[in-house]
């Protein structure tokens, strides 16, 4: 905002613009700004979310490697500059809105699981993700069982049997198994102003 008006008015204009391009109202964008501020000052108070801050929020600890956290962070960090800005935060959360188009959720999940960004979810990537999940949840599965699970998944999802799941195959597969997209919807986003009641003391906008 380059206006000579007060910073509050500039910020209001920016939030309104963000709301226009999202499923959120201005009030909801303001409420999400409260969440963003909280997350972005948890370790380094610079108004940006660093990976360690997202990790702290999701795992209650800012250290340790987690493949899925890395993938989520990469997709939120659209500019690929190592931090999540508020605009990027709103863009990515828009996909998780209960009323966001299912195609956006399908695409986001595909990009999440396409670890090497080849345009396909490869068998090796699925193996890597299941192994990471087992490590994270301290579960132990025999190699044989793990292979069976992956075989079964590919038998269902990889319809042309080329050993990798294309975007089209992924779409058909998740539409057949919609529970796989369950974590792509955050019911909180439908009523975000209730989730952050503190924001109502700050708002200057009537929805």
């Amino acid at each position: 905002c380059r206006s000579r008006r007060s910073p509050q008015i500039c910020q209001q204009a920016n939030l309104s613009l963000l709301a226009l391009d999202s499923p959120f109202s201005v009030n909801e964008v303001e409420a999400l700004y409260e969440l963003f501020k909280k997350l972005s000052c948890s370790i380094i108070d610079d108004g940006l979310i660093h990976k360690e801050e997202l990790q702290l929020a999701l795992f209650q600890a800012p250290y340790g490697e987690n493949l899925f956290l890395d993938r989520v962070f990469d997709l939120f960090d659209e500019k690929k500059n190592g931090v999540i800005e508020f605009e990027e935060f709103i863009h990515a959360l828009s996909v998780f809105h209960p009323y966001a188009p299912i195609e956006e959720k399908i695409d986001f999940a595909f990009r999440l699981y396409d670890l090497r960004q080849t345009g396909f979810i490869e068998r090796e990537e699925v193996h890597q993700m299941v192994a990471a999940l087992l490590m994270e949840s301290e579960m132990i599965l025999s190699d044989e069982l793990l292979t069976m699970i992956i075989d079964k998944t590919f038998a269902d999802a990889d319809s042309d049997k080329d050993g990798k799941i294309s975007k089209e195959e992924w779409k058909v597969y998740v539409l057949k198994h919609p529970t796989l997209l369950k974590n792509m919807t955050l019911p909180y986003l439908k009523d975000v102003t209730t989730a952050f009641p503190s924001f109502i003391f700050n708002t200057e906008v009537e929805d």
């Binding site: 929020a57 999701l58 987690n66 989520v72 999940l133 069982l145 699970i149 796989l180 369950k182 974590n183």
Partner: peptide, 26 residues
């Protein structure tokens, strides 16, 4: 559900790193 009837993505989707709902729970 036994592990053999599970599919890999069902397992993967239970990761805490993919559960963004926890951002709103504190």
């Amino acid at each position: 559900k036994t592990p053999v009837t599970m599919n890999a993505f069902e397992l993967i989707s239970t990761s805490q790193g993919l559960n963004l709902g926890s951002l709103f729970e504190k």
